[in-house]
Design a binder for these strands. Structure first.
Lengths: 111, 111
DNA sequence: TCAGGTACTGACCTTTTTCTCAGTGCGAAG
DNA sequence: CTTCGCACTGAGAAAAAGGTCAGTACCTGA
């Protein structure tokens, strides 16, 4: 989320889903409610700092709902809001596209 | 394009469309063939360096076709390949989502 | 002759993003 | 009595992305 104005809807949407981790988090939450540590284990290579940072951002966007259960040890559950689910649905064709062309994309020479 | 392996199709796709300019370029090319300077004028705020950098990247992905007409002054035309068009189609629902929620997204407090 | 348009390229710098690592406080398990 | 898991937080550094600016070589119109 860097911009304040967008030249088209796609521009705005890519700003919301962009970055290294948001798509992965959205994907993990697609299946339902998840605890913090479950997400961390489910998303390969993510650090705790990045995970919270992204979750908090998505919370301020209204995509993710955060529920704290006051108990020891602490239990915090994350889930998608209706808004988040609507985003996930809009992402399905893109996810399918990526799935179909994954090997092509991975084979592209970098730098 | 930073990764070599992806955990899901969405991850791969977001890596391809991510960044500040690619969505905008894709959107501009959606309407047809464009010359370099036309793209520059059409995309508000982009520098020549960024525009070429992104176009070249998209060319190596096979999304964009670059055609040089050997003449003076030079004329270079950019257009989408079939692969690029297939990506654009997969992006339509996301673009629509962004369009629908643009005002919400713009109203989110940053930092 | 001099600015302007064509399509770039490369050096260098700033901003943004991501990563690493250490630490918190509590309870349960070994 | 030490370690583990829980859900974080913050400092500081590294890496990636993006931006500015100057220059190239040629032609056209003023």
């Amino acid at each position: 989320m860097k911009k304040r104005t967008y030249s088209c809807g796609l521009d705005a949407a890519v700003d919301v889903v962009g970055g290294k981790w948001k798509a992965l988090i959205l994907w993990e939450l697609h299946t339902g409610v998840r605890r913090f540590a479950e997400l961390r284990r489910g998303i390969d290579g993510i650090s705790e700092k990045m995970l919270i940072q992204q979750l908090r951002e998505m919370e301020t966007y209204g995509l993710v709902h955060r529920e704290v259960h006051r108990q020891v040890p602490p239990k915090v559950e994350y889930s998608l809001t209706d808004f988040g689910r609507s985003l996930n649905e809009a992402l399905i064709p893109l996810g399918d596209w990526g799935e179909r062309h994954m090997s092509t994309i991975e084979a592209i020479p970098r730098d």
